[in-house]
Measured scan of single mutants.
Amino acid sequence: VTTYKLVINGKTLKGETTTKAVDAETAEKAFKQYANDNGVDGVWTYDDATKTFTVTEMV
């Protein structure tokens, strides 16, 4: 189990959260659900070296 981080660069919501998951795919599903629940829709990137997902909403 690995800890993954999500950085949110939203128009109205900004911040970070973490989740523990067995792999990046599982973490991504959890983060996308979290973003969807919070009304964040944007471009996703993932950095495997730092285990960090970033979602950026276009203005």
Rank of each mutant, 00 (worst) to 15 (best):
N9Q: 10
I8P: 01
N9I: 14
K20F: 15
A30K: 14
E25Q: 13
T54R: 05
T45P: 00
T17N: 07
A30R: 05
G42C: 02
T12M: 09
V55Y: 02
F53M: 02
E57R: 03
T54Q: 05
M58W: 11
W44L: 03
T17R: 13
A30F: 15
V22G: 11
D47V: 05
G39E: 06
G15D: 12
V7N: 04
K51P: 00
T52Y: 02
D48S: 12
T12P: 04
V55F: 03
T18R: 05
E28M: 15
N9D: 10
Q33L: 12
V43D: 07
V59T: 13
G42D: 01
D47R: 03
D47E: 07
F53K: 00
W44G: 00
G42T: 02
K29H: 08
A49W: 09
G42N: 01
G42L: 02
N38K: 15
G15W: 15
V40G: 02
W44C: 02
K11M: 11
V43A: 09
E25F: 15
V43F: 11
I8S: 03
D23Q: 04
V43W: 08
E57H: 05
F31N: 00
V1P: 11
K11R: 15
K29W: 09
F31I: 02
N36F: 14
Q33E: 08
I8K: 01
Y4L: 00
K32G: 03
M58G: 11
T54V: 06
V7D: 03
A35P: 01
K20L: 15
T45W: 06
E25K: 13
Y34Q: 03
N38P: 01
N9K: 11
T19E: 05
Q33F: 06
K29L: 12
T12H: 15
I8M: 10
T56N: 11
F53L: 01
T52E: 04
V22W: 09
G42I: 02
V55H: 01
G15N: 10
Y34R: 03
M58P: 12
T3I: 14
V55Q: 01
K29R: 13
D37R: 11
E16V: 12
E25H: 13
K14H: 11
V22F: 13
D23N: 11
G10M: 15
T17K: 12
E25G: 10
T54N: 04
T45Q: 09
T45G: 06
T56L: 06
D41N: 09
T50D: 05
A24F: 14
A30H: 13
L13E: 06
W44S: 01
T3A: 06
K29S: 08
F53E: 00
G42A: 02
V1I: 09
F31S: 01
K32R: 15
E16Y: 13
G15P: 05
